[in-house]
Design a protein around this nucleic acid. Structure first.
Lengths: 207, 207, 207, 207
DNA sequence: AATGAATGAGTATTCATTCAT
DNA sequence: TATGAATGAATACTCATTCAT
């Protein structure tokens, strides 16, 4: 008997959390580095401040949830691309595009944890796993590219790590500058790695 | 006549600023992302809160100064390495070592500006110039490596950019994890780029 | 439907502002020229400091409101007297009594703006208008007194100005002394002006 | 023996106090209602902050001194005018001119005590005496005017009080407005009192 | 469950006063 | 005596969190 209303409750709960998540993202996008107040989030979600506390124990929990959701979202999209059935080179290009688009929309995604001070509350394992998954996405593409014959046989763990870190570095530097047009950086990154990954001897290019 | 006491004053001024700088670094290292209060900085420097304001107009100015000093310090050391007369490969290795050591000591170095909210007050030109200088350090080494014959002729602008961004990405990910042992990431980065840069045809390696 | 709760809210809002207004007056009366702190006002109103900011954007706004309310209150009472249907001489006497009673209760009324430093934020027009209204109250009485035949035909603009300024001067000097018994000063003022205003030739009196 | 150096000390003391007085006036003229800091006064006097405390026990004492000096200055000038040998009407006019000029130069003169919070420390007797002296200046002129035959025989105590209070009121209202051109108010005041004081029957004038 | 007013701890900054040089 | 750096109490304002309705 209780099951039905229980489910109803859960559905409502999730709907509310979803709305709060969207609201938080909206506020995070507008606000510069300051001003992520509970009041603003509530207002953006169209609810009262106190209501937030029916869905999240405190601000930290809320931000943790937002952080998770953001990571889930980008990871899900990335994994989808990684498993799509297009040639590896194009898949790599598509993946970067996706990441950079996402970052342009949600500047905050890659440092919300740090900026909001919740980074220390997340268990290391969880953080490590997140990174592993992210690197894994690149690794899948590299491995399939090798199988396809599009890439030569390199150490995919190492290469995907560096690739991932270069992506993070690009995001950081562009964020520092305040410029979210990643075109050039993305092109540079791809061309360097295509060159590195191409089968056959390397041909020196001009500056 | 006034010159002497004037100098004395300046010396004291600089000594005090130095002490405050050190104190701010200490606090920044310990404190989680919260707690970078003027009170804490003053306490760490062993002075009263009000005294801070004899040396810095306000908190923003103080943090800006710390940010500048950090960048100056690491850049100066990097440039010195870049211009040293050792083989390019070793120079690159040394440079990474230096950067990672520095980051291990001063976790905050590459995102103080953002975390403290002063990033928007720094003129874009200044930020761009800083990045250009940082990339330039790598570029110098790459160019001299090519002249030496240690590296093949690659596009040094592009390559140094990616190298720099990978370094930033490594710093970010390790900071996220809370691990400041950069050994493995550094080795991976170097081995990939050595391979990429080595003259002659690439030889595929095993995973 | 929303109208009801909306009204309720407004009523509460006004009640709170009223309470804060009273508290501010209380503090202003007790406190020496120092100590007009938000904390004190809140304490006097029996609320927390932060609550003040639910009703007034900042200290300046609060004091501006108090200033306005005081002026409104005394002006309203003064205008009422000015329009009452008693003989002009008695009306004048009553008006002075009212003003001096009010000042005895609210020492601060005529220089809150200055003491609190908000005087510069009030537009000159507004200040000029306030003075004009105040002088106008006297002028009405003088004019009707002339029509009644109680006063001779003098320049009412000039006379009401001087009358008003003498009142202000009395308030200031008594406040300076710290004595809020205005009886004698009021009597002196009235007797001088009655003499000045009386129809027919002046008769010299003894010292 | 000690007498000489003792005198020297006193002379120096007075010179320093004089310089500080001038400096305080300078600062008070510039500064709006806020910002009368010991540091600013010291700077304006060309000495160090700490040096102020060799001449005044604390800020309150310093302001008290400034207040006294200002009153002395204007009173001295007023008394001089009161005793000058020109016709009473002209003397009265000259006195007002002097007071208003002085006020235009030193806006602060008539409310420094209140604004600075020292008003409560001044003994009532002292304050009463100051007022009596001020009123006395007017009274002298009125009495001599009567003797001269320029004024009719009015109650000089009462009349000089009201005259004085009207002057204070004019100073207050003009200060409130922020306008230090007292010409019109002064003319109005004089014409009203000349009319009041003139021997012979009053003649009604037009508005 | 939802509301939003109330709370009060926390923070940057100012400035009178002191005191070692 | 003069200096001016150091002190630290004081104060306006913010915002996460609570709780009566």
């Amino acid at each position: 008997m209780a099951t039905f209303s229980e489910r109803q409750r859960q559905v409502k709960q999730q709907a509310a959390q979803e709305a709060i998540y969207e609201a938080a993202l909206k506020v995070l996008s507008n606000a510069s580095s300051e001003g992520l107040t509970m009041h603003d989030i509530a207002a953006a979600a169209g609810i009262a401040t106190g209501t937030l506390y029916n869905y999240f124990k405190n601000k930290e929990d809320l931000l943790y949830y937002v952080d998770q959701r953001l990571h889930d979202q980008i990871l899900t999209e990335a994994i989808e691309i990684a498993h799509s059935s297009i040639p590896a080179k194009q898949r790599l290009s598509l993946l970067l595009q996706e990441i950079f688009y996402f970052a342009a929309d949600h500047h905050v995604v890659f440092d919300l944890a740090e900026r909001s001070g919740i980074v220390e509350r997340i268990p290391i394992q969880e953080k490590q796993e997140l990174l592993d998954q992210a690197v894994g996405v690149f690794q899948i593409i590299l491995e399939e590219g090798i199988q396809e014959g599009s890439f030569r046989k390199i150490n995919t763990r190492k290469t995907s790590s560096i690739l991932f870190e270069a992506v993070i570095g690009i995001l950081e530097t562009q964020k520092y500058i305040g410029n979210y047009d990643f075109t050039r950086a993305s092109d540079d990154l791809l061309s360097l790695f295509y060159e590195y990954l191409q089968p056959g001897p390397l041909v020196s290019e001009r500056n």
